[in-house]
Design a protein around this nucleic acid. Structure first.
Length: 571
DNA sequence: GCCGTTTTCGGCCCGACTGTTTTCAGTCG
């Protein structure tokens, strides 16, 4: 059966939590957590690897015993050992670990002394002042727990990158105004340009860290100060976004930037490499025999452990350490190399601007070309174009192209792929266009086999060139539809087609993991904004970030080509 | 439970903040 990597990782995390509450060997529980983290970041489907008979115990942090457990999970959908463990505890005990300040040790005490086995029971015990009577708990702790049970449900909320971005910029501006602040950088998953951000991790250098921290906690818009130390503080903004600030000395800036940028698994791998070379890495530097030998810049930190500099977008433990050691890191695509935008709408369908307005805005962005890709007629809700209106639009584009200097408009359409894989407009009109991009907009619930066959059939049409938002997901709102990605990648290359990386902050589709796999399968890409108004042409940067996280280089992205070369490629 | 050009045994990333156990454990990132 198909079990997702996230589900498998969750099983091992639960194993670790329960074993820890039971007081087992901490290194054994850590082994489960390491395995869970590896699986979350794997980028390949474990179920499929197992079914293909691959030796998954070759994966770092996964040994023979965990490999066997993974096989059991893939075959049966469950892990007998976890089911057994769960029987010794109340079913909702793990929920109380989500409360700030409660870890396995305190959970164990609460369970053993007061038989607390759920958030509800925890709240009632706190209200009855039973918790403050336990050894190791105080009145203050009890209040903190009570507060925690009230807001527990919001746990795990992540923010779209584009939502976190204005907060990050405002905080950076605020902190830089402080006279003692020297360098201020928003690090963490934000710096890695991850599609969603759990919190903001800000790093600053200052001669007087404590004063800068004091200034930080005065930031307007703070709802709660979680911690407030001499070099480090955590606050929660009114928007519920958590922000950590860490202050270091300039000689440690690179080490701290590395530490605070993560990812956690990337950092751990670097630390282990250092340890194996007889050195030590922490947020203050790289140390040999107790002496700092690097730390001011990230580059010298990497160099110190024998690695090339690794761009933040690559720091996800997806092979970047080996690539850096062997000097074969990708030269990541840059936004400045994007020469055009190949997906946007006008008031011919559901866009809010005219063709000319979109073209002028694109020219402002320095582009050489754009493609106008209004919806085809199947999408009645968005006033899609039939053949007649498509031809009217092409005539208008010809007129504007003749008048407008400095930018070229490609005649295009976002063509609906119907349920059976046929297309919403006939070849007779498609052949008059410069570019046809195709998309799935309905019947998301087809079986994987049917959905895959549907899309592959559409790609076989000689005029279809780009499959846009290839998996249909909306971050936090809609799961991707089921499609066999390996077959999809083959269909794309076999038919001389390309995949889109859609730059809408909610789509970012393909995502980073699939982009990397597609590239490895020989696929090339278009990064486009899918703009419905002139302002959202700015979304291009989000698409480029996602492409960079997928290890894409300039040569992998077709809209870095000149118009001449692009037209030749599109045939 | 994982892992190994020092090792199949004996290690396992590292440090800040909090609270209260006056010297450190628990939690967190």
């Amino acid at each position: 059966m198909t079990v997702s990597n996230a589900e498998i990782a969750s099983i091992f995390t639960q194993m670790a939590d329960l074993l820890e509450i039971r007081g087992e060997d901490p290194f054994r529980t850590r082994a489960y957590r390491n395995a869970a983290r590896t699986i979350e970041n794997l980028g390949k489907d474990l179920s499929k690897m197992v079914e293909a008979g691959e030796d998954i115990s070759k994966i770092p942090t996964i040994g023979e015993r965990i490999a066997n457990k993974i096989r059991e999970i893939v075959q049966t959908g469950r892990l007998a050992k976890l089911e057994y463990l769960k029987h010794s505890f109340p079913p909702h005990l793990l929920d109380i670990l989500k409360i700030e300040g409660i870890g396995p040790k305190r959970a164990k005490i609460l369970y053993q002394e007061l038989h607390i086995g759920s958030l509800d029971a925890l709240r009632k015990a706190a209200e009855a002042h039973k918790i403050s009577q336990l050894r190791g708990f105080s009145e203050k702790m009890e209040q903190k727990i009570l507060k925690g049970t009230m807001l527990a449900k919001k746990e795990g909320k992540r923010f779209l990158y584009s939502v976190a971005e204005p907060h990050a910029e405002a905080l950076e501006t605020y902190l830089k105004k402080f006279s003692g602040a020297e360098q201020v950088t928003v690090a963490g998953s934000f710096r890695r340009r991850k599609e969603t951000v759990g919190d903001l991790d800000i790093l600053a250098t200052s001669k007087d860290p404590a004063k800068l921290i004091d200034y930080f906690v005065d930031y307007p818009g703070i709802k709660e100060i979680v911690s407030h130390g001499d070099t480090r503080s955590t606050v929660i903004l009114n928007s519920d976004l958590q922000v950590d600030l860490r202050c270091v000395q300039a000689e440690s800036y690179g080490a701290a930037l590395h530490y605070f940028t993560g990812s956690k698994s990337h950092n751990i791998a670097v630390r282990i490499m250092a340890r194996d070379m007889g050195m030590k890495v922490n947020e203050y530097g790289l140390f040999k025999d107790g002496k700092r030998i690097a730390g001011a810049t990230e580059a010298e930190m990497y160099e110190g452990v024998g690695l090339r500099y690794i761009e933040p977008e690559l720091r996800e433990s997806r092979g970047e350490h080996t690539a850096a050691r062997e000097n074969r890191l990708p030269k990541l695509v840059k936004q400045t190399r994007i020469r055009g935008d190949l997906h946007m709408h006008t008031h011919y369908s559901d866009g809010h601007n005219s063709i000319e307005e979109m073209a002028l805005a694109a020219k402002e962005h320095g582009y050489e070309y754009i493609a106008i890709t209004d919806h085809s007629k199947h999408m009645s809700i968005v006033r899609g174009m039939d053949e007649k209106r498509a031809r009217e639009q092409m005539a208008e584009i010809d007129r504007i192209n003749a008048e407008l200097k400095g930018i070229s408009i490609l005649k295009s359409v976002e063509l609906d792929i119907l349920e059976d894989g046929s297309l919403a407009l006939p070849d007779s009109v498609l052949k008059e266009m410069d570019l046809v991009v195709a998309a799935v907009h309905d019947h998301f619930g087809l079986t994987q086999k049917m959905q895959t066959r549907r899309i592959l059939k559409a790609l076989e049409n000689p005029y279809v060139k780009i499959l846009v938002h290839p998996t249909g997901r909306l971050i936090g709102e809609r799961e991707p539809y089921k499609v066999n990605m390996k077959q999809l990648f083959k269909g794309v290359t076999d038919n001389g087609c390309f995949l889109e990386i859609n730059a809408q902050p909610k789509r970012l589709d393909l995502n980073d993991i699939y982009a990397k796999r597609a590239k490895e399968a020989g696929v090339r890409f278009a990064i486009s904004t899918d703009s419905h108004n002139a302002a959202s042409l700015d979304y291009m940067k989000y698409g480029v970030y996602q492409a960079r996280r997928g290890w894409l280089e300039e040569k992998d992205v077709i809209n870095t080509l000149s118009l001449l070369k692009l037209k030749k490629l599109l045939g």
